[in-house]
Amino acid sequence: MFLIKPFGIIAGSLSFAKYAVAPFYTGSCVLVVATINMLNVRFTMATQVVFMVAKFVGLLIIVIGGIASLVQGNYGSLCSLESAFADTKLGISTVGMALYQCLWSYSGWYNINNVTEEVKRPEVNLPRALMIAVPMVTILYLLVNVSYLVVMTTTEMISSSAVAVTWGNKVLGGWGWVMSVAAALSAFGSLNGSFFSGGRVCYVAAREGHMPDILAMAHMHRRTPSPALIFNTIISLIVLIPGDFQAIVNFFRYSA
């Protein structure tokens, strides 16, 4: 409640701001998501579905673009795919660091565990969601990275602050902005999901007597845990004060 969820929320907020609302105050993104979550559960879920589809479509564009580039074979950086692991060292420490660096990318699955109470037939749908989502994410991310290596050199990938946007500019040309929009939608969807589950953790903790009773209250008509969501918002905005994305992500990984 004080570390993992707030840090995840702000990391997602900063990611969204980088692509979509950089000229504005980043905190406004957090307040928008908080308002959505407090107004209506069904609308929150509908929002999540829409942004999940947008994320999936964005990843498919990258995968299909990489396959097309590979078939055409007209990019000078095709050698990057063949030498992607050149000069790397295999060892416990290096493999551990690689897992650490991509931990957050694969950690979204645990959000559903935090909302099991609100899942219909959790004994069926929870295992089903995990068995479908984790392999799908693994396969998609693998294909996306292959697409990156087909189009970009390793140096370009390392130096780029937004790899998907750099990829889009090289492959899509004038339509490169599509990847910026897709990345922003993806970040917003992740932020919304983290906020939704984070409020439930706080709500149940209060109900079990681990937090003040007021956080276990829910809106009579909207059926949303508004006090818990407001508490999450306050903690998240406090975490936002430093505004250092890299430090927040590293601390989030360490805490997780």
Rank of each mutant, 00 (worst) to 15 (best):
Y203A: 10
S13Q: 09
E208I: 10
D244S: 05
W109F: 13
R200E: 15
P227R: 01
N145D: 01
I4M: 12
L14A: 06
I9H: 03
G96L: 02
A205E: 15
L90D: 05
A98C: 03
C202E: 14
S105P: 02
L14G: 06
A98N: 04
C102W: 06
V165R: 08
T44C: 07
L229S: 08
C202H: 12
I238C: 12
A68G: 03
L185T: 08
I248E: 11
L126W: 06
D244G: 03
E82S: 12
S80M: 10
I61L: 13
N169C: 01
N250T: 01
Q101F: 03
L215Q: 09
S190K: 15
W177M: 14
W177V: 13
W109P: 03
A54S: 11
V95R: 06
D213P: 00
V239Q: 12
R253W: 01
M179R: 07
W104N: 06
A86W: 11
M97P: 00
N169P: 00
A133G: 00
Y19Q: 04
A129R: 06
L126M: 14
V201W: 14
F7L: 13
N74V: 11
S69L: 06
A34W: 10
L78P: 02
P242C: 05
G173C: 09
K18E: 10
I248N: 03
A184W: 11
I139S: 02
K18F: 08
G73Q: 08
I92A: 10
G199Y: 15
V178S: 09
V239T: 11
A86Q: 15
L149M: 06
S190L: 15
G12P: 04
E117R: 15
P122I: 02
H221Y: 11
F195M: 15
L229I: 12
A54W: 04
A256Y: 05
T47V: 06
Q72M: 14
A20Q: 01
Y106F: 14
G199V: 03
T233A: 11
A46W: 05
T153W: 01
Y25A: 09
V21S: 13
I112T: 14
S69K: 04
T153S: 12
P6R: 02
L59I: 07
V50N: 02
L140M: 06
A34E: 04
V95E: 07
L78N: 14
H210N: 14
R222D: 11
S15V: 04
L172E: 10
P135A: 04
S159N: 09
S147P: 00
S159R: 01
N232Y: 10
Y100A: 08
V119R: 02
L31M: 08
G12C: 09
N113I: 10
Q48V: 02
G243D: 05
I112H: 12
A187V: 11
L78C: 10
H221C: 10
T154D: 08
L99S: 02
L103K: 01
G65T: 00
T166R: 05
I139Y: 00
S197Q: 15
